[in-house]
């Protein structure tokens, strides 16, 4: 998350100019888990998601010499994963021409928050509940910004939504969460 953008660019540069395998492995370690999570939300199968993300990274290695021309590597990885996922779904089901904004999302499995035992505070418990209850698309936008560290405009681009829609969905998500915590806090005071 706070990994310096600079550092990602350094990895990119090392892969492009000196075929640095260690840098490539670091790039994979840094992004593969979250790309698999994102991909799985689309294709809904763990194995398939892993293969797709592998393919994305194989493409990176094959095109390493031109990697320095990629402006924003992180976004490039996400867009590639999205495109590969859509291609996969289209190849499975030819009569549909699926667009990313029409997809069913499997948000439950990979964007789940940790199951917390009695350790979290009451307010936190309410907060996590409220996150679970967000509608799928709203939750995906929320999680892509929160957990994948994408900018709001990047999420819009990735999901083929207008920037305004992403803004609104995020604001709605935060408002719902705040209201849930607020309600729990008031309840706690009354008790």
């Amino acid at each position: 998350m706070h990994y310096d953008r600079l550092h990602i660019q350094e990895l990119q540069h090392a892969i492009a100019t000196s075929e640095d395998q260690q840098a490539y492995a670091e790039l994979f370690a840094r992004f593969a888990p979250q790309l698999i999570r994102f991909t799985k939300a689309i294709v809904q199968q763990q194995e398939v998601a892993e293969e797709i993300v592998s393919d994305v990274f194989i493409r990176i290695w094959e095109k390493r010499k031109s990697l320095d021309h990629v402006q924003h590597l992180k976004m490039y990885l996400y867009v590639s994963a999205r495109n590969f996922s859509l291609n996969y779904l289209r190849s499975k089901n030819r009569q549909f021409s699926l667009q990313v904004e029409q997809l069913d999302l499997d948000m439950a499995s990979f964007y789940a928050d940790p199951h917390e035992e009695a350790v979290g505070s009451e307010l936190r418990h309410e907060l996590l509940n409220a996150v679970q209850q967000l509608p799928d698309r709203c939750k995906m936008i929320f999680k892509l910004v929160k957990e994948d560290g994408l900018k709001q405009k990047e999420v819009a681009e990735l999901l083929h939504l207008s920037p305004k829609t992403v803004e609104n969905q995020l604001a709605i998500a935060l408002k719902k969460l705040a209201e849930a915590v607020q309600a729990a806090a008031l309840f706690r005071v009354k008790k």
Binding site: M1, A25, F28, A29, A32, P33, I36, R37, Q46, E50, S109, F110, Y111, A112, D113, P114, L123, R124, L127, L128, V131, K143, K146, E147, L174, L177, A178, E179, V181, Q182, A185
Partner: peptide, 27 residues
Amino acid sequence: TAIQQITRYWLQSPMPTQQAQSGQDLW
């Protein structure tokens, strides 16, 4: 209070789920 709770939650990273494999395994 609500906004602070959300901010704390936001700063927390996602936990790996049970199915998630180790980085080495994926690699």
